[in-house]
């Protein structure tokens, strides 16, 4: 080697920007809302609302890193939530294996349903070459349709309180779903870029053609990736059902747009190949704080929708501008390097 090779990671611009935004928003909240924001009740209500959405966002993140999208994850969440609620409210099941047995069977079935939904998406994308946006749009309608078919479109309520108490208890003031979510974020941040499947998906997102010409196991990896998205949707269903003590097709529909928003805000390239789960977590926190602020400011739901949509577009514009700017810097640096090395 003519030059010495440095083992050094480049500084991650996205993480710095996100951390900056988070701090700025917290400061603004402290300034504008003071105690009505920073009080135990408000914060603990936020903390209990975050996990179900964060898992959906993580699933969306996996799909978007592959250069795809998962429009069906809220529908998958509803479907697995319905399966869970049916198990929990079935007196025959509870009579046979006891209430805790029913909870266990319900939870496992719900997770399996989520994984099945994801594998269904993954196969229709990798085996049949359907573009992800179309494949998951179709499966979204399909999953919701199934849910309506099972429930006649009616809500299921009156779940055993053993289950809701399990989800809503606190460990050192923090609910278990929140702690679990933090743990999963840490695991995903560390493992996703290091596991062979994860690496394959990042590379596939960066260039499908090169992935093919490199002989990567694309079909298997995509199926696993979307299965993970489905699994996260099911985890989200467990939390949602436990928190609201009910489930109905159409629950959490607003999460779909917000999940895309938050993943893009977290610096995942919508064209695929790039994205960090740690950054998605920061983006989830930012979104939740803003959400909370909108409630405290008493914005109407219409105003909220308007703001979310506007934010998504505005963020993409800012991102493109930033990228152009850094591309220009990179080109300059590259030219300089070439001039030096020629």
């Amino acid at each position: 080697m003519p030059e010495k090779i440095q083992r050094r990671w480049p500084i991650d611009m996205d993480s710095m920007i996100l951390a900056g935004i988070l701090v700025a928003i917290l400061a603004f909240m402290g300034f504008a809302l003071g105690d009505s924001f920073f009080n135990i009740r408000n914060i603990s209500s936020m903390v209990s609302q975050i996990p179900e959405f964060a898992f959906l966002a993580m699933g969306m993140g996996v799909a978007m890193i592959t250069g795809g999208i998962d429009l069906s994850n809220v529908a998958a969440m509803n479907l697995s939530g319905i399966v869970l609620a049916l198990c929990l409210t079935s007196s025959r099941l509870a009579g046979g294996v006891g209430i805790w047995g029913a909870i266990l069977i319900g939870a496992v079935s719900a997770l399996l349903v989520g994984v099945a939904c994801g594998v269904f998406n993954g196969l229709s994308i990798s085996r049949f070459g359907i573009p992800p946006i179309i494949a998951t749009l179709g499966s979204m309608l399909f999953f919701s349709g199934l849910g309506v078919g099972i429930t006649n479109g009616e809500g299921i309520t009156g779940l055993p309180e053993q289950f809701t108490r399990l989800i809503n208890m606190t460990i050192v003031e923090l609910p278990p779903p929140f702690l679990f979510m933090l743990a999963v974020f840490v695991v995903m941040s560390i493992l996703a870029p290091r596991l062979t499947t994860g690496k394959t998906l990042y590379m596939y997102g960066s260039s499908r053609v090169a992935a093919l010409f490199t002989g990567l196991r694309i079909g298997k990896s995509l199926a696993l990736g979307y299965a993970l998205s489905g699994l996260f949707a099911a985890v989200s269903a467990l939390i949602l059902v436990g928190r609201t003590n009910s489930i109905k097709v159409g629950y959490g529909d607003t999460y779909q747009l917000q999940a895309i928003l938050v993943v893009v805000l977290g610096g995942v390239n919508p064209d695929g190949g790039k994205g960090k789960f740690g950054n998605i977590l920061v983006a989830v926190l930012i979104l939740q704080i803003l959400q909370n602020a909108f409630t405290l400011f008493m914005f109407t739901p219409y105003a909220k929708k308007l703001i979310w949509g506007g934010m998504l577009l505005a963020f993409m514009v800012v991102r493109t501008l930033l990228e152009k700017w850094s591309d220009r810097r990179k080109i300059r640096a590259r030219m300089a390097q070439m001039a030096e090395g020629a």
Partner: peptide
Amino acid sequence: LVSEDRQSQGLFLSH
């Protein structure tokens, strides 16, 4: 196989 088009087929350019 070192394929014909190294930019699109051979490399993950941003990696």
